[in-house]
Design a protein around this nucleic acid. Structure first.
Length: 585
DNA sequence: TAGAATCGCCAC
DNA sequence: AAACGTGGCGATTCTA
């Protein structure tokens, strides 16, 4: 593609005519060039803005932040719409280096992801998307050039072209979004971009001293467990002589562990947690092995590596959040994953509010079950939520036909397993495995569950049938997942039925969650408060101590409002707690 | 020997 | 073989 008509702007008197044309355009392309990928340690060099007729390249090295006034106004306004590819990136740099909250975003990256409807083989780089939608091959070689020095012609051509291509690209993707009824879902996604950028830029504070102390405790326990297991498992090994140490077993190798267990007379098919768990009661060595595994996991995944992610400039963790991380629309997080920190006080208390600040930890109460109740219109499940009583206890009471007060803890646990398992399409074997019962007993429990909630039974069967018949599913916002299962493969068909039950529920939960994020962010706009983490149904906000209670109220209200946009028949409950650390008090 | 595949396990 | 859905990640094992 040839370079479009463009003008390089290095003086403030050149801005006015450009701004006049940009304000007059309903949609403009936006791109930035930066000296690196990290907004805290890199600089913003160029801001490219394009109308269909013309592009402008603003060299920000020539503009102190104060001189950008009128441009900031344009960028913050909801109109004109700004088309950008992966706008989160540009939004972070604009926020950090120009103090602008980018408004009116149309993100071609997110749009492309939505339009691909869960097809994970599609790539979504600007290059790939331009190729797919416009049939044009882009040359991206200038992207990684040095953007900190004197700019040369090919860099400016490249910069102008990337902004100009976004407008025709948006047109084509819009056609596809419209064709697939994805406009509502796209709107939800676009509104999340700025909150996501703000969150990543702010980062999540981790007390490194606390974390190191925790690691030391785990290390000691790990050594102890390892020594004990080596001597236990070494017993079965043949020894050269009495004075030779028994050969070391690699406890992290499932193969070696299985062989070692066999030598001391314990035969196992697999060494996974669920298989071993059942044997843990009769064999102390297995119980120890499971403890060892858990400690290993702690050390490897949540060990020093977490500290390596602390940013040298901000002293905080700036994880990478993928806004559409799964086909159901869930957000995922990596480097580090702040969504899988062990749910124990020892770990979570290290994520705490800095001096003078508080964390507000707010999560939806049983949102997926509420969605299931709303979708299925099951009378008993609906009643269970309206009663306000403990869901699992109520489920047990309704299944077993006993009074609420006489439900035993064991019965409640079984009902809980059913409530959680059922939205994943769990079968009798799965339940039996989980609650340590026979398959027959599990079958009886499932029958009782569906007898108590016949509407749920009907909805789940129907969802599975629809999934198979249509080969796709949608969430409440219309988010689409076109399945890629092999219809000639029995196992894959069974999986498709389970996904058909789960995807609309999990996906609607992420619709609600994303709306919640937008509303929370809007509610906190003028406050000294900032979203710092997102975990599927939980939002963590850091704020000034003095306004913590008020912020908790705003967060709770916003999340409830988001839930009510989608659930009309079932109450939405959010628990918001003010805390010094990432704990629900 | 580097990268892919697999296992196992953390979160929701 | 799989058996409960979505992910990320680390260690081991396999493979080209």
């Amino acid at each position: 593609m040839d370079a479009p008509d463009y003008q390089l702007i290095t003086k403030s008197d050149e801005l006015a005519p450009a701004l006049a044309a940009l304000w007059a355009s309903p949609v403009i392309g936006l791109d930035t060039e930066t000296t690196g990928l990290d907004a805290h340690s890199s600089r913003l060099r160029l801001l490219q803005l394009g109308t269909p007729e013309r592009s402008w390249i603003i060299d920000l090295f020539h503009f102190p932040a104060g001189a950008l006034g009128p441009v900031r106004e344009l960028l913050a306004a909801p109109h004109p719409v700004k088309v950008a590819h992966n706008a989160k990136f540009d939004a972070k740099f604009l926020l950090k280096h120009a103090g602008v909250r980018l408004g009116g975003i149309f993100d071609t990256y997110l749009a492309s992801l939505l339009a691909s409807a869960g097809n994970e083989s599609d790539r979504h780089s600007l290059e790939a998307v331009v190729q797919r939608y416009l049939g044009i091959q882009l040359d991206k070689s200038a992207q990684v050039s040095d953007w900190s020095g004197e700019l040369v012609g090919y860099q400016l051509d490249y910069a102008a072209r990337d902004a100009a291509i976004l407008l025709p690209l948006r047109e084509k993707i819009l056609e596809r979004l419209d064709e697939f009824d994805l406009m509502v879902a796209a709107g939800i996604e676009f509104e999340c971009v700025l909150p996501m950028a703000e969150m990543e830029l702010a980062g999540f504070y981790l007390d490194s001293g606390c974390w190191r102390a925790q690691l030391e405790r785990v290390r000691a326990a790990h050594r102890e467990a390892s020594d004990e297991l080596q001597s236990e498992l070494g017993r079965g090994a043949s020894q050269m002589s009495l004075f030779d140490a028994p050969p070391q077993i690699n406890l992290d190798s499932p193969q070696q562990v299985r062989d070692a267990l066999a030598r001391i007379g314990i035969e196992v098919e697999g060494t996974s947690e669920s298989k071993l768990h059942k044997l843990a009661r009769e064999h102390a060595v297995i119980k120890r092995l499971l403890e060892y595994r858990s400690l290993s996991k702690s050390l490897s995944t949540y060990g020093e590596s977490m500290l390596d992610f602390i940013h040298p400039v901000t002293g905080r963790l700036h994880a990478d959040f993928r806004q559409i991380g799964s086909p159901t629309g869930r957000i995922t997080c990596s480097q580090p994953s702040l969504q899988q920190v062990p749910h124990t006080v020892e770990y979570r208390s290290c994520f705490r509010a800095p001096e003078g600040r508080k964390l507000v930890v707010a999560d939806f109460s049983q949102i997926e079950m509420r969605i299931l109740a709303d979708f299925s219109r099951d009378r008993a499940l609906t009643e269970a939520f309206h009663s306000g009583a403990d869901l699992h206890r109520t489920t047990a009471s309704q299944m077993l036909g006993v009074a609420l007060e006489s439900v035993t803890p064991a019965q409640r646990e079984q009902a809980k397993s059913l409530n959680y398992g059922i939205v994943y399409g769990m079968g009798a074997e799965g339940l039996a495995n989980r609650i340590d019962s026979s398959v027959q007993e599990a079958e009886v429990l499932i029958e009782k569950y569906f007898a108590a909630y016949p509407g749920v039974d009907r909805w789940l069967r129907d969802a599975a049938e629809r999934a198979v018949k249509e080969g796709r599913s949608r969430t409440a916002s219309g988010r689409l997942w076109v399945y890629n299962f092999d219809v000639f493969d029995r196992a894959q068909m069974a999986q498709m039925r389970r996904v058909g039950k789960n995807a609309p529920i999990q996906g609607t939960a992420s619709d609600i969650f994303k709306r919640a994020m937008t509303l929370v962010d809007a509610g906190l706009k003028e406050k000294d408060a900032q979203i710092v983490n997102l975990i599927h149904d939980e939002i963590v906000v850091e704020c000034a101590e003095a306004i913590a209670e008020e912020v908790a109220g705003i967060v709770e209200g916003a999340m409830v409002a988001a839930g009510r946009e989608f659930l009309t028949r079932i109450p939405v409950i959010v628990e918001a707690v003010v805390s010094d650390a990432w704990l629900k008090k």
